[in-house]
Amino acid sequence: MAFRQRLDAAVLLRIQERVRRSLAAEQLDALLTDDPEDVAYLTGFFHHPCERPVVAYLPVEGETLLLVPRLETDHAEWQRVQAKVVDYPEFPGTVEPISHLARVAAPPGRLGISPSTSIERLALIESSFHGAQVTPSYAVTRARWVKEPEELTLHREAGRITDVMLRRGVDLVVDAVTQGSPLPTEAELAAFLGSVGSGIMDAEHEDVVVIGFRAGGLVYSGPNSARPHGLPSTHRLRPGETFMLSLGCAVGGRYIEGERTFILGEPSADQQRYYEAVRAAQAVGAGALRPGRTCAEANDACLQVIRDSGLGHYLQHRMGHGIGVGMHESPWLEDGDPTVLQEGFVVSNEPGIYIPGHAGYRISDSMQITAEGAQPLTAFPRSLDDIVVAA
Score class of each variant (00 low, 15 high):
L23K: 10
P97C: 03
A286H: 15
V68F: 06
R236F: 06
A374G: 12
L42S: 04
G169P: 06
E120C: 04
A390W: 10
S268F: 14
A30L: 00
H317L: 10
D365M: 02
A105S: 02
A250L: 13
G199N: 04
S330W: 09
L189W: 01
G248E: 11
R6N: 05
H155R: 08
E157M: 15
E90V: 11
V251Y: 11
L13I: 09
A9D: 00
E72C: 09
E26A: 06
D386V: 05
S127H: 07
P239S: 04
E372N: 08
T135C: 01
T141I: 00
G180W: 11
I125V: 15
R318P: 06
V389I: 02
L264S: 05
S364D: 15
L65I: 08
D385Q: 12
P331R: 00
E96N: 03
R142S: 05
T339H: 02
G44L: 07
S127M: 07
H358Q: 03
G217F: 15
D74V: 11
E204Q: 15
V39W: 09
L264W: 06
F243N: 00
T339N: 01
L172K: 14
V81P: 03
V347C: 02
R227F: 12
G217T: 13
S225D: 11
V19E: 03
L333D: 02
F91G: 09
Q27N: 12
L333W: 03
L247W: 11
E17C: 06
Q282N: 14
E188P: 04
A105H: 01
A288V: 10
L384D: 11
H358N: 03
S268K: 11
A10N: 01
S22M: 01
P69I: 03
F345C: 00
P331V: 01
G109N: 00
Y41P: 01
H205Q: 08
Y57S: 00
E350W: 06
